[in-house]
Simulated scan of single mutants.
Amino acid sequence: MTHLTRRAAMAAATVAAWGAGGALAQGATRLNVVAFAGASNLVIWAGQAQGHFARHGVEVALELTPNSRAMATDLYAGRYDLALTSVDNIVAYNEGQGEARLPGPSDFAAFFGVDDGMLSVMAAADVADLAALRGRAVSVDAMTTGFAFVLREVLGQAGLAGQVEWVAVGGGAQRLAALLEGRQAATLLNTPLDLAAEARGFRRLARGRDAVGAYQGIVAAARRGTLAAKREALVGFTRGFRDSLVWLDANRAAAAAILTARANMPPPVAARAATALLDAERGIFRDLRIDEAGLRTVLRLRSKYAEPQRELTDIARYSDPSIRAAALG
């Protein structure tokens, strides 16, 4: 058996043994987690399979949401204990700028960071550059939340402000499907969805980080009441997430196999996705930080584009660093 064959066999065994390594610790606290298609799911899938969350007294039940409106409504209602979502969604709802009408004031807070969004503008093969999007349809999750303002900034810098047709489609998986079906000419996708589009012949026109600089993308967030009531479990979740990330970094072939099994990605694309997600500089944050400079960029873009318009500067309003400090300190 060759070295590559042995690695493939070990990776396959990891996926085949799903659940065997994830036996729950007795008396584990269940956390209901909602997320979008993206980087954080790889970490959770691996953590469930390898028992990283269970070792810290947590049972993680993961569901995917179709869009940010459903995410905010369900998180507020207590259907989920925490969300893996863009920090811009947290800011939007705390500022009363979200698209869903909540029954009362939002009290969402981020407690650790995952990535900078890993965002790219992906377009149909016949779109040569950003200028070619003039007069064509581009999609976002929702017009006032998520990563919509990153795409508006990218297009604005290209001289396309007011020159495209905006369509609200839903989360990344929904936008990828719409792009593949030809319903829009372009959209903003995160990794690994951008790689799935690229593998189908779609074109990368721009990277979000090149246009906006430092940016805080996905975070783990909960209602402040949940942060207090389930503090011990959330500390355990943070530790399990960190341990799962460490394991993935040391088991790249297994990481790719998980993406193939759970995200239905062809093995070559899954391998590229695992490499991108686990890149020490541009991938998932090893220290789970909430990047202050990145959060300031989120506030700057929201101050520029959101309605009702207001100047946002206080980054402390949207996060609670104590969970991460207790877990990793």
Rank of each mutant, 00 (worst) to 15 (best):
E181R: 14
L259T: 13
D116E: 13
V169T: 12
L288G: 06
L133C: 01
A23L: 11
H3R: 15
D74A: 08
Q26D: 15
R207Y: 13
T5P: 00
P103F: 02
A178P: 00
G135R: 02
T2C: 08
T144N: 14
M122Q: 07
G156M: 00
E95S: 07
T29L: 00
A37I: 09
A173N: 08
A211N: 03
L195K: 08
D194A: 11
A173I: 00
G172M: 11
A46C: 15
T187A: 00
T65V: 14
H56D: 06
A54P: 01
G22W: 07
I218T: 12
Q50G: 12
P321W: 04
D129Q: 04
S303K: 09
D194H: 04
L312R: 10
Q216Y: 08
A178G: 09
G329H: 06
V219S: 06
A325D: 14
D74Y: 11
V114W: 00
A37F: 06
R55D: 13
D88N: 14
T144I: 11
L64A: 14
N251M: 02
P103Y: 03
A274T: 05
Y318Q: 11
M1Q: 06
I323Q: 13
A221E: 09
H56Y: 09
Q157H: 03
R224C: 14
L277N: 08
G170M: 10
L288V: 05
G38Y: 11
A211C: 05
A23I: 13
L179Y: 00
A253D: 13
Q157R: 14
S40N: 13
N89R: 02
R79I: 14
F111K: 04
Q174I: 03
E292P: 05
G146H: 05
G294H: 12
L84S: 12
L84K: 04
E165F: 00
A261F: 06
A16Y: 09
A233K: 10
I44Y: 03
T297A: 09
E165C: 05
F112M: 04
E165G: 01
E198D: 06
E311Y: 01
L133H: 03
I315W: 02
L4M: 06
D81G: 08
R282Q: 15
G104M: 00
R175E: 10
M10E: 15
V121H: 05
G240Q: 10
E281T: 11
Q309W: 01
V246F: 07
E95H: 11
G172T: 14
L119C: 11
W247L: 07
D115P: 12
P103K: 08
G294C: 09
D129P: 00
G170E: 12
G283Y: 07
T145F: 00
P268S: 03
A39V: 10
